[in-house]
């Protein structure tokens, strides 16, 4: 009898944990969908849509995304201490989200979105459910991959000052990453790719400079904003 009772408990436990994972996955699917829309919005920057409009469109999606993280946090409250049991289910969505937020933030402020800032934007960091640092760093690498394209399109559209600004930003970012002693893992591979982004931006900067298209140096002392 006593065994039976215990196993009845196990039965309930097993079914609960299955349904929990199903719910987490359902949220992750929706996150994935929002980040796609967000990315779609962000892409308009390559077509020279004014940044203010891009930011505005994005702001709405970020709210939705934040809502999903809120739901996820609630679900995780039901199983305290099991964050890393299910982490793999929303990892890649979070990395993409960070890359998009960081790009938007850079467009707006010219600065790198910091870890705490990213947490705040996603409504994380309050409870035990924070933004994993490796996920953050991978997201930043993803963001760097977008910059060469951005710079090419900006120059095509006649903005000859952007290569300098992007180059400055990317050089600093790259230097910061070089501080880390990475293992031979996914993050290291992504970081290796950043070198090529940097080089491409330099080439564009060179193209612009050599033709005398870049604004005079005094520009540097002014604002980073477009």
């Amino acid at each position: 009898l006593s065994i039976e009772k215990q196993f009845e408990g196990f039965r309930a436990h097993l079914e609960d944990s299955n349904s929990l994972r199903d719910r987490i996955r359902a949220v992750a699917v929706e996150m994935e969908s929002v980040t796609r829309i967000l990315y779609s919005n962000l892409l308009l920057v390559h077509q020279s849509l004014p940044i203010s409009e891009v930011l505005e469109k994005a702001a709405r999606q970020i709210e939705v995304l934040k809502g999903h993280y809120g739901r996820l946090a609630e679900i995780l409250l039901e199983c305290p201490g099991q964050y890393y049991r299910y982490h793999g289910d929303w990892r890649s969505e979070t990395q993409t989200a960070v890359s998009l937020l960081a790009f938007l933030h850079w467009l707006e402020t010219g600065n790198l979105l910091k870890h705490e800032e990213a947490e705040k934007k996603l409504g994380l960091g309050v409870s035990e459910f924070g933004l994993d640092i490796e996920d953050y760093l991978i997201g930043i690498c993803f963001m760097s991959n977008e910059l060469p394209r951005y710079v090419v399109n900006q120059v095509t559209a006649g903005d000859y000052d952007s290569p300098r600004k992007v180059l400055k930003f990317l050089t600093d970012l790259h230097a910061a990453f070089r501080m880390l002693n990475l293992r031979n893992d996914f993050l290291r591979k992504k970081f290796d790719g950043m070198k090529y982004d940097l080089r491409r931006v330099e080439e564009v900067f060179y193209d612009v400079k050599i033709r005398g298209l870049a604004p005079v140096d005094t520009a540097e002392e002014h604002s980073m904003q477009t």
């Binding site: 308009l44 077509q47 020279s48 849509l49 559209a157 006649g158 903005d159 000859y160 000052d161 604004p215 477009t226």
Partner: peptide
Amino acid sequence: GSSKKPRTL
């Protein structure tokens, strides 16, 4: 100085 023309117009 920017002389952008949004491509999507």
